[in-house]
Nucleic acid binder design. Structure first.
Lengths: 346, 346
DNA sequence: ATGAAAGCGCTAACAT
DNA sequence: ATGTTAGCGCTTTCAT
């Protein structure tokens, strides 16, 4: 159907090598010849077959991106920022939603390998260390984003979750809160673990005993936010504040609090993780830990493409960059005197 | 680096043809031979080179998806639903954000052509009819989603925007509203045009004169929602209700209304387009026109893959499917007596 | 049941 | 400045 380089060569009365030189803007073609070839190319609407080119050059200009679920705003921002950078450098993105499922993740890794992508950016489940190491060995460039994998040494770009979490809890403490609950994802993910650690450090540094009834852990999904918050609100001892460790958990917490007919911040204070447009128009606007998601994605893409283009096979030391979060103060936390805290006790 | 079929063949003492038969589960290989080959494959961690296979078979198992911007929830749901279906059939998705920019769209179409994708799903700007027709002619399967293109005959899956819009405005009228404003995207997009048409039909059928001061048009972005709503609220004659024709416009409208210190629905009623988790936890929860976005995407992917796999070159009549919206009643519209409507006049 | 060999469309080394 | 040709890794037709 579509013409190929051979057809163009024939019609232009030159060899395929010359056509190739023209296509690729290589030097060593007389201007007249170049013009002639370009004319035929345009007449026949010739377009390069990228598959043949990739086979020959061992380069696809594709990068694979594996995220948990693009429906979550965190990942859609990540995907967009990666795609922006990729596009800038002439790469395309193959998008994979692994649903936080190690098997699906492995499957996608294999597909990407077979697709001969030039590199992979992955927010990993943490479970496929062996296969990822084998990819690394076969010289596929990989950048981990947001989470690390035990047993894998490779470039990564992370967020300082521990400090972000610490700052949020510290802020609550500074505002007079003592009974602070955490709803969090599983701690076998580095994000979950670090956010828990920050919570604990803030309490310990302020001599507030850790109350296990206030630490609720399940997956990082909205449904868990609903369930865990319900549990907290049904507790004999109710928390004065809830810190929700990601966007979906925050959403779930807000849903539950609304169902219980509680007012924020008078009945309960809330700090969320991640910031979106919606959180500002909530009533009250939500105080949140903002992650630099766009930077996370764009940096990972820059890093990956740099790796790909340098193709430094002897690069030994891997680069791990950690970005900072920022606490955005809005109105879901009020100043609480320690005394009112005591009165609230039941 | 990675072993190829030739290496496997040598080590197994067979020909490459036999290895290929094994890889592809073709019949006509003795069980003993198959076992031997599989053993070598597994020992050497051989994985098929999809690029070479694609070149030979003229099939990539890739589909291109061009959306406006994955950051918008509408498109992230669309992308996810497409990816889900694609994955089910063994296809991968190459994701492209064209930013509603015809040039970027054209560029991506060319990239996808060069990448030899098996098909393309596109929410089109409407501007690249010629190139899209040329793709169709070179037998690349295409499905349009959400919008049509003038001068292109091809499968499409749409939403009944006119009726969705009509229903929203009719609902406002039934609740006693007369001064109903529309903030809408440009009407050179079919979505924009149809949503305007539904608005107009609802007013006309109820003998409410069209007031051009109440019809505000700009692009479909949040910033436009803010600006257009500001304009409306600064009008000498203020609307009693605002119907925002997509999610980002709704978000912008809410932001503006909040800035003006107005209460919904007492000071002004609002109906949004598109439904997300957030709209339920707003105060008040928002009444919206819900589009079946997931179905839109999954149907388009099913349609595309069916086209690809049938490869019916003589398929003449294109299929256009239109899905219905649903009005989700929540609390951002109150019952208004006609009299109070008059009093509000200034 | 298995192998030999052509060829998908391109690039790149080498020759002229 | 241009051409010849090998070959990327696979599938597939035709032999045997």
């Amino acid at each position: 159907m579509s013409p190929n380089i051979k057809i163009i060569a024939e019609k232009a009365g030159v060899s395929t090598a010359t056509v190739s030189r023209v296509i690729n803007n290589f030097p060593g073609v007389r201007e007249k010849t170049r013009k002639k070839v370009l004319k035929i190319i345009s007449e026949l609407n010739y377009e390069v077959d990228g598959i043949a080119r990739s086979l020959r050059q061992k380069k696809t200009f594709k990068i694979g991106v594996i995220v948990e679920n693009i429906l979550s705003q965190f990942y859609s921002i990540l995907a967009k920022s990666i795609e922006d950078v990729a596009h800038k450098y002439g790469y395309n993105v193959i998008l994979c939603n692994a649903d936080d499922d190690p098997e699906k993740e492995l499957n996608y890794l294999k597909v990407l390998k077979t697709s001969r992508v030039d590199g992979i950016i992955i927010a990993p489940t943490g479970k496929n260390a062996d296969y990822i190491n084998s990819l690394l060995q076969s010289n596929i460039k990989i950048v981990l984003v947001d989470r690390l994998i035990e047993g894998v040494e490779c470039d990564a770009i992370l967020v300082d979750n521990e400090k972000g979490s610490y700052n949020a809890v510290k802020y609550l403490i500074d505002n007079g809160y003592r009974k602070i609950a955490l709803i969090n994802g599983f701690t076998d993910r580095t994000t979950g673990k670090e956010r828990l650690n920050g919570y604990i450090r803030a309490l310990k540094e302020n001599n507030i005993p850790i109350n296990n009834d206030f630490i609720k852990i399940r997956d990082f999904k909205k449904r868990s936010g609903i369930i865990l918050t319900e549990e907290l609100l049904k507790n004999k001892e109710k928390p004065e504040a809830i810190f929700a460790a990601n966007l979906d958990l925050t959403l779930g917490a807000l849903l539950s609090i609304k169902n219980f007919g509680l007012k924020i911040p008078d009945d309960i204070a809330v700090i969320g993780f991640d910031d979106t447009d919606w959180e500002q128009i909530l009533e009250p606007p939500l105080t949140v830990v903002r992650q630099p998601i766009y930077d996370l994605g764009s940096s990972s893409a820059e890093m990956l493409i740099k790796n790909i283009e340098e193709d430094n096979k002897f690069k030994k030391d891997n680069l791990i960059i950690t970005l900072n979060t920022k606490l955005i103060e809005r109105n879901s936390v009020k100043k609480l005197s320690t005394i009112s805290g005591q009165i609230n006790n039941n």
